[in-house]
Design a protein around this nucleic acid. Sequence first.
DNA 1: CTGTATCCGACGTGATACTG
DNA 2: CAGTATCACGTCGGATACAG
Lengths: 133, 133
Amino acid sequence: MRPEHTHVPALPPSPHADGNCRAVASVLARVGDKWSVLVIMMLIDGPVRFNELKRMIGGISQRMLTLTLRGLERDGLVTRTIFPTIPPRVDYELTDLGRGLAQPVQALGKWAFEHLPEIEGARTSFDARNGQG
Amino acid sequence: MRPEHTHVPALPPSPHADGNCRAVASVLARVGDKWSVLVIMMLIDGPVRFNELKRMIGGISQRMLTLTLRGLERDGLVTRTIFPTIPPRVDYELTDLGRGLAQPVQALGKWAFEHLPEIEGARTSFDARNGQG
DNA sequence: CTGTATCCGACGTGATACTG
DNA sequence: CAGTATCACGTCGGATACAG
């Protein structure tokens, strides 16, 4: 038995980046979510319906779209507006917070787009080097 | 050789891009990687050794650090310099590409940090609403 | 010190079927 | 049309042991 191992209460006493780092990481995780960014991008132009969104993204399952939208809504990035009509209609729209997030995300996306050749080249080169031995 | 492949058959006339979206998504995925961003941040000041990195991050396993660094190296974001000494020493350093990426990432991190209260507030509010009813 | 290989649990993801 | 519930699968991630 290792009593010392079972009890892990202490977190590293980092001076600056301790709790904040974690919290920021959670936001970064949202951005890194396979679908979140796509959804945000699709909502930039204005409110979009559920299936419309699903159609625009293409390749996302109903489940994942629902979960993604839930997460986004939870973080206060999108709003969900229900129209109690028949058939039911639900609009998703970016909040101010969401639009604010979209900006740095777009900057990142722009960077990614511009440097795609370099990255893909680096990958090819690396794979070749690795593959050859 | 496949001449067909070199010619990029049909790109959609969409202004949002379609095939590019995928590629960009892969870069976003890197950013969303739990550890990649942290590693990049740690390397901004200059080259860092393996265990030093592991220590700075704190909470990352040896395996994950290795894999993360591999991925970063593959994408041409960091370089790996081996000093054939005893004991062996390996320095990891950001490339120009990596430093370039660090910029928008930092912008995103800054945004995240500044809007943490709002996001956490939204989460609490959402959870309360969801929990109660 | 710097990695690699292996086992194993946790979680994300998708397909399907069902409800309002 | 919008959303939930369930199951099955693959990958991610950590702990450990081992190697150069």
